[in-house]
């Protein structure tokens, strides 16, 4: 065994060629320069989201960042606070919308869900009002 290992090691040393030139850049300015890192779970997220034109929240933990003021995409807010998913709303056509609340200034915003959002996190958010059984039971009994 030691002899074979010595032989094979010598062969790889002899046949090792210099590393090929990489024309794909992984650093800043490369092909992932539009990615952002989630402030909630530190996941690297690409900006192109299936189903929507603009990615505005992390698909894993649904946390967003307070960068827009009144118009979506205007990047006019100076707050830059972390926006956590507060509740789930449904449009009249049935599409789900996440209501985000800024943790530093209390601003609310409604965002469409994306195709690759964490389904478990979405359902947990939608079931939040019904999880606390005391309030929901009291309401159903009063109906």
């Amino acid at each position: 065994m030691p002899r074979r290992a010595k032989n094979s090691g010598r062969r790889t040393q002899r046949t090792r060629r210099p590393q090929r030139h990489k024309d794909v850049l992984h650093r800043r300015g490369g092909h992932r320069r539009h990615d952002f890192r989630c402030v909630g779970c530190r996941l690297d997220v690409s900006l192109d989201a299936p189903g929507t034109t603009h990615r505005n929240h992390c698909p894993n933990c649904l946390v967003s960042l307070h960068v827009d003021r009144r118009v979506p995409g205007d990047r006019a807010a100076a707050c830059r606070g972390r926006m956590e998913a507060l509740s789930m709303s449904a449009r009249p056509d049935g599409e789900w919308m996440i209501i985000h609340e800024c943790q530093s200034c209390g601003e609310l915003s409604a965002n469409r869900i994306a195709g690759d959002d964490n389904a478990l996190a979405l359902v947990r958010l939608a079931l939040k009002p019904l999880r606390d059984s005391s309030v929901a039971h009291r309401m159903l009994l009063r109906l």
Binding site: L86, S87, I99, L108, K128, P129, V135
Partner: peptide
């Protein structure tokens, strides 16, 4: 009213648009 949110205390909030 578009949604119902739950605070940490368990109280319900109505989200208006």
């Amino acid at each position: 009213p578009i949604s119902v949110a739950v605070l940490r205390t368990g109280d319900w909030m109505v989200i208006h648009r």
